[in-house]
């Protein structure tokens, strides 16, 4: 698995930040070496040698000026560099209408593609090379969107929508996480950003726009019936079934997602069954209750959910 760090930039925004980060860290290293060097020299050279008191020195104005003005110059340089980087890493958003809307929930991400009306969750697809303006909102408490390779993090605050340009320039899967403490399962509110070449992205979007056909026989049909009769339908939307609640992730295309439970499990039929059997086992405290389903019910539901491609 590749490591996940702001230093491997996958967007021009992050490129600028990581460059600045490295420059500042180098300067900090120089200062640290200077201070440690001086302290080390002092404790070796000036350790106690005799009983007499050393010569008393009370200060030196010229030195005070030097160690005030040199750091001041460095700080001014950082300030200018900050202004530059900021212009690149967080370009103005005013006057543009957002392409995507991401809503934070305790503890999952609701993702809307505003131009096509597609709604999905947790796996967030981006087209490579196409700057995407994302609006961030929260349905409950404060969350924070953070994918290190893609640029700045940003808070999702109730009543205070934020916007950010995301402009991925390398295809790949980038892992991120909710960074603001948001309650019991803050740890498992992970992000999977999937950047695809525009052609692939469009194909994916097309797939998400078409509603999968409803099963007509076998366990899948039993699963569909269960889904409608159990409380599932009061929390989860599946296009074509009627109500569109958003208390839980939209499951219209659940079988095309890579993970379950905001990055908690890989999306395999086995894991899906285990999740349905007892979500609290994997995410203690999650808003999806343990519905005490029988194995038969679970198998039918899995059979149905697997048809949702």
């Amino acid at each position: 698995m590749p490591i996940n760090t702001p230093f491997i930039a996958a967007s021009p925004q992050e490129q600028a930040i990581s460059h600045l980060f490295i420059v500042v860290l180098c300067w900090m290293g120089v200062i640290l070496l200077t201070v440690t060097g001086l302290v080390t020299y002092a404790i070796i050279r000036y350790r106690k040698k005799g009983e007499g008191e050393p010569r008393q020195i009370f200060g030196n104005t010229r030195l005070e000026w030097i160690w005030t003005l040199l750091p001041l110059a460095l700080v001014c340089y950082f300030f200018v560099a900050t202004l530059h980087t900021m212009a690149v890493s967080d370009p103005p958003t005013r006057g543009h209408s957002p392409d995507m809307l991401i809503i934070g929930h305790q503890w999952w991400w609701e993702v809307h593609y505003l131009k096509s009306g597609v709604v999905t969750a947790n796996d967030v697809h981006f087209p490579v090379g196409v700057p995407t303006l994302v609006e961030f909102k929260s349905a409950d408490v404060i969350h924070d969107w953070w994918v290190p390779e893609l640029g700045p993090k940003i808070d999702l605050i109730p009543g205070h929508p934020n916007k950010l340009w995301i402009d991925v320039d390398k295809p790949g899967t980038y892992l991120g996480t909710c960074a603001q403490f948001c309650g019991a399962e803050h740890a498992w509110m992970r992000i999977r950003a999937i950047a695809q070449e525009p052609a692939q992205f469009d194909a994916w979007l097309k797939e998400q726009e078409t509603i999968p056909p409803q099963p007509t026989s076998g366990p899948a049909l039993a699963g569909l019936k269960l889904f409608k009769s159990l409380p599932c339908i009061s929390c989860h939307t599946i296009e074509g079934l009627g109500p569109t609640p958003d208390a839980g992730p939209n499951l219209t295309h659940i079988a095309t997602r890579e993970t379950l439970g905001a990055g908690r499990l890989m999306n395999t039929p086995k894991n899906l069954a285990a999740w349905l059997k007892d979500p609290q086992k994997f995410k203690p405290g999650t808003q999806m209750p343990n519905l005490r389903l029988t194995n038969q019910q679970v198998n039918d539901l899995v059979a149905y959910l697997e048809t949702l491609r």
């Binding site: 702001p6 600028a16 930040i17 600045l20 980060f21 500042v24 860290l25 900090m28 700080v75 950082f78 560099a81 900050t82 980087t85 900021m86 890493s89 967080d90 924070d144 953070w146 290190p148 640029g151 700045p152 993090k153 940003i154 960074a179 603001q180 403490f181």
Partner: peptide
């Protein structure tokens, strides 16, 4: 100081 440079803080905050 690296945190005061706020683009860096946008990465490492929290």
């Amino acid at each position: 100081v690296t945190l005061a440079v706020f683009p860096i803080d946008w990465q490492v905050h929290d």
